[in-house]
Write a protein that binds this DNA or RNA. Structure first.
Length: 548
RNA sequence: GGCGGCGUAGCUCAGUCGGUAAGAGCGCUCGACUCAUAAUCGAGAGGUCGGCAGUUCAAGUCUGCCCGCCGCUACCA
């Protein structure tokens, strides 16, 4: 098997507020699991993301707090970095859209689209807040709904009757910023000929294989309805400025088009930092390179439609291999989101659960095909019933018996019984089967299959009863424990993408070095190995009543 | 309103191209075992697959309608 270049592209969070467990489950843990697997397989993985510093919500929040957008970013970007550290999520680079490299890449991209004939200028009328001196996004115009006369309708939609609105139709419009009545003012913008990509996009989407059905169906449905040209620029100071000056000052590239270009700029920033400025091309220009975009389902349009269309317009760059978008994690049926304020801060979970335990519980409940419910009791149950009892206890009992009967030294196995051969075959199958599921980005199925390996080892021990055999035939007990050890290290490898810390501890204790990384194959525990010190892998979790 | 998705055992969820008597984990009941963090192993009970109608030799799996929940609806992300 040859090594592949794999770009693991992770959704860029707004540096606007703390992240919740829903974000981790939806977009941040899955790519880490997948990237670890591909690395273990021997592939050359580049995992990048960063903070989106230009979103409108950031400027709004900054206005509300009376600080600069940079202050908001300065608070949350470092906070994100601590999340990754706490959760063992390893990026090759987690940057921001505020870097010089990003600006350069975005501006070059703009010029390329312009050069290829996909951008043109046009004028339109937009609401303008004269007091604030700024144009207003639809959402920041309020007024009376022309449909139901609800007095606090937003420019994009009325919360009362649910009707989609155009801000121009609002009765008695007012600016959400200043409360004054906005005026219509002509503004000139660059527009993107998105409509020209309907057919190529449809053709491309229809030829995708192995994508999650909900992702493909949604994208195809949207393109089939027909995409229209869209403005490429905005009347905003906070953003990446245009590389041309024919529109005058005060214009930025629309944050969404600019943010997805981070997938292109971050690898370049990474390459520059490595001292090999052209290294990024191996992931972007080599047609054999793969790219996986890990996002929540709300981001499907941007990663399965708009970004591919931008890449088509640019030319010479790889389109996404897959966009394994996740559904939502709900808490007691309620979506976790910053805006709704549902769900607790990550620190709450980190204070109560070990990292690997939390990673495991989330992985077992990943919303890959449906919205999935996850609560504290479920996390605790996963840890107590599955990690402590099934996996941790398995390791513990084998280490304990090896210590008791053989002073902790793994024995040279004698003749293998059919049951032993079968057990060893199952150990190998655990690694192979888990890998097959991970190849399909079925992370939830993968972790369940890996844990099955631990259950099989428990069943093998139960059948062989080495504690009984040891009384009459010590060498035979040594063989049984060796076989069980093989099953343990195979399970440890299979679980490594999910729980790197504890898996590495197990492998090291059984004499399998992880200094050069973990290799995706069933390792061999050598006879004569003295099992290392290994405290219990996991501790039982007890949630206080007040926690629930 | 439009588009899309979901509704499968007490709980959380799987169910590829429609096809042998509907699955997993947990929980529950019973049994076995005692090396192990009272952990483990085995067996069993438990579902008219949201409702109604239709297509088909055959539907959880396709079609229509209804009920409930959710997302998107484009310059909001």
């Amino acid at each position: 098997m040859t090594s592949k270049k794999v770009l693991v592209a992770v959704a860029w969070p707004y540096a606007q507020g703390p992240l919740h467990l829903g974000h981790i489950a939806g977009a941040y843990l899955p790519p880490d699991i997948y990237a670890r697997y591909r690395r273990a397989k021997g592939d050359d993985v580049l995992m990048v993301s960063g903070s989106d510093v230009h979103g409108t919500p950031i400027t709004v929040k900054a206005d509300e707090l009376g600080v600069s957008p940079a202050d908001i970013v300065g608070k949350y970007h470092p906070e994100f970095l601590t999340y990754w550290d706490d959760l063992d999520i390893e990026f090759d680079l987690f940057t921001t859209t505020g870097t010089d490299t990003h600006r350069r890449v975005v501006q070059d991209f703009f010029l390329k689209l312009l050069d290829n004939g996909y951008l043109y200028t046009d004028t339109s009328e937009q609401f303008y807040d004269e007091k604030e001196g700024r144009f207003l996004p639809d959402r920041y115009v309020e007024g009376t709904c022309p449909n139901c006369e609800y007095p606090h309708a937003r420019g994009d939609q009325c919360d009362n009757c649910g009707k989609t609105l155009d801000p121009i139709d609002l009765i008695d419009p007012r600016s959400k910023f200043s409360g004054t009545r906005p005026v219509l003012r002509e503004t000139e913008h660059y527009y993107w000929k998105l409509s020209e990509f309907n057919e190529p996009l449809l053709e491309w989407l229809n030829s995708r294989e192995g994508w999650r059905p909900h992702v493909l169906n949604f994208a195809i449905g949207m393109v089939t309805e027909g995409l229209h040209d869209r403005a490429f620029t905005r009347d905003l100071e906070w953003g990446v400025p245009l590389p041309v000056d024919d529109l005058g000052p005060g214009k930025s590239i629309y944050v969404w088009w600019e943010a997805v270009m981070g997938y292109l700029s971050a690898p370049q920033e990474w390459a520059e930092a490595q001292g090999t400025p052209d290294a990024w091309k191996a992931w972007w220009e080599d047609p054999d390179a793969e790219s996986y975009y890990f996002v929540g389902k709300d981001n499907i349009p941007f990663h399965a439609i708009y970004w591919p269309a931008l890449l088509m317009g640019h030319g010479g760059l790889n389109l996404p291999t897959d966009v394994p978008a996740n559904q939502y994690v709900t808490f007691g049926g309620k979506k976790a989101s910053k805006s709704m304020g549902v769900g607790r801060p990550l620190s709450w979970y980190l204070d109560r659960f070990e990292t690997d335990g939390l990673r495991y519980a989330i992985a077992q409940n990943l919303p890959e095909t449906n919205d999935t419910d996850l609560d504290d009791d479920e996390i605790a149950r996963r840890i107590n019933e599955e990690l402590v009892a099934t996996w941790g206890n398995l390791v513990n009992r084998v280490v304990s018996m090896t210590g008791r009967y053989f002073d902790g030294v793994v024995q040279q196995h004698g003749d293998l019984a059919p049951e032993d051969e079968a057990a060893l075959a199952r150990a190998a199958a655990t690694v192979v089967d888990t890998g097959a599921l991970l190849d399909d980005v079925k992370l939830r199925g993968g972790v369940a299959r890996a844990m099955q390996g631990a259950q099989e080892a428990n069943a093998y021990l139960s059948d062989m009863a080495p504690w009984t055999v040891a009384k009459t035939d010590l060498p035979r007990a040594g063989t049984i424990l060796w076989v069980a050890s093989q099953m343990i290290v195979s399970a440890a490898v299979s679980l490594w993408p999910y729980m790197p810390t504890t898996s590495e501890a197990v492998l090291e204790a059984f004499g399998v070095s992880t200094a050069d990384g973990v290799a995706w194959r069933a390792p061999t525990v050598a006879a004569g190995t003295t099992l290392g010190e290994l405290p219990p892998l996991f501790s039982k979790v007890e949630l206080d009543d007040e926690d629930s």
